[in-house]
Design a protein around this nucleic acid. Structure first.
Lengths: 248, 248
DNA sequence: CGCTAGTTTGATCCGGGTCAATGCTGGTGG
DNA sequence: CCACCAGCATTGACCCGGATCAAACTAGCG
């Protein structure tokens, strides 16, 4: 297990965040169809654009911390964000990964319910919460879209719980690869190549396994020719066998 | 592990659902303050009342099934609802318990994302989805309240994930009792008596433990005078020790 | 009062955690 | 351009917590 400082870059790293740039050309944005902003028409989009800034983050830098005042919301455009909670014992439970197109940062109260940091270089559209909420309240369909995003996040959370339970390591890892493929599919289209930009420790903290077990299990799947381990990901060789293992 | 038929009553049990009654006196409803309808004023409330019916369910009867067309939403008023998914292997993962005041049944798509059945005799306000959504869309603050309920559910899901990870059985069970006390507190006020209307199997399927381990762990906490096992619940004897165990 | 479903308790076993050593790789500076 | 280094990944050896199987016990309920 890791101490907070080892998990993500210390505060100084926040200063590594690149400058904020104005949003431009939302209408050309490749991830817009998969995003909350997909429901906005041209006029609404330009109003929306004016509220936000593009924020870019170095690898392993903090976006926000659990318990901090939730005064900005984010829409990830590139990279990968780790969402996690720290237990009193110092262990980290990753409660989700945010991919391009995912929306973050509107908890029930006014404080973030989990921490978020980047696994790799990441960019996101950042909006002040006040303005964002005001905008949502005056655009009904957008508010509905937000509810939809929350319901989708809940659904993903349920998927993950189903994985976290007392299942075999092989089933967890196989199901994880499957789930990641399904999520990338919406963005990159169908492919047997599944990017895994996060490290082994991250996968372990997501599935409730030790780094050693994650590594061993992947190696075993590779040796059985079910997958092929490639840099920063895996290639699925035998999809039906993988699905079968995921089912347990 | 259980087969689907053992987990909940077979279809015939649905017929044990009591008759639907008109909603009356929402304004007097004891759980309204904790519920989505809390934001409605007198006039809105009476419109809302007209849309719904009170449904009552015998113990262990199905409310809806994962994958079925989501054409009704529910607001639990009394009893306890188990929310669960069945894995291909036949295991059941309970993804949540719905207590009085909790809202159910608005998934991202048009099909339920999990199954719901009752652990004990339960009543709920039932609304046709179409009408409910139409109502929400024409009452902005209510729609916001719905988003809030979803965000709260997501937060609970994150709590549960944190428990499901590779933690000690003692920590899981202690944290579970703590969490249930906190949830009942909103409804019943502070008390050291924590109702646990669900069975040991349910607790196990919620925490990712076997029924044997749940039972053993509770017995151990009882013998250590941290809790006292009472019918359908526990009494907390040493709250600070319990909290300490929950932390790990 | 006996039946049934749920719970408690015991005995055994194994998957995966832990600890530790080794291997690999990409980035840095001489 | 290459040697070095730091961080991550892999692999091995050992051990323990909790699963599993099975039996005994208990509490509602007809």
């Amino acid at each position: 297990m890791l101490t907070p400082l080892e998990i993500s870059a210390p505060f100084s790293a926040i200063s590594r965040m690149g400058g904020l740039r104005l949003l431009a050309n939302c209408s050309q944005c490749p991830i817009r169809p998969a995003s909350i902003c997909s429901v906005l028409d041209r006029r609404e989009l330009s109003e929306f654009e004016g509220m936000g800034r593009e924020a870019s983050f170095a690898p392993r830098s903090m976006i926000f911390m659990e318990g901090a005042s939730a005064d900005a919301v984010y829409n990830v455009t590139t990279g990968l964000v780790r969402l996690f909670r720290l237990l009193p014992g110092g262990q980290r439970q990753i409660v989700g990964f945010a991919l391009p197109g995912d929306f973050l940062g509107l908890p029930p109260g006014d404080r973030y319910g989990f921490s978020a940091d980047t696994a790799v270089k990441t960019t996101a559209c950042r909006f002040p919460r006040r303005n964002f909420i005001a905008f949502a309240e005056s655009h009904g369909p957008f508010l509905r879209r937000l509810h939809d995003a929350a319901a989708r996040a809940l659904d993903l959370a349920h998927d993950q719980m189903t994985q976290l339970g007392p299942r075999r390591a092989e089933a967890k890892v196989a199901a994880f690869i499957f789930a990641m493929r399904r999520r990338w599919l919406r963005l990159n289209g169908a492919s047997t190549l599944v990017p895994l930009p996060m490290g082994r420790q991250d996968i372990g903290d997501y599935l409730g396994l030790s780094i050693a077990t994650v590594s061993r299990t992947l190696t075993r799947l590779d040796r059985q020719r079910v997958i092929l381990i490639v840099p920063k990901g895996v290639r699925i060789l035998d999809s039906s066998r993988l699905e079968q293992l995921a089912a347990h």
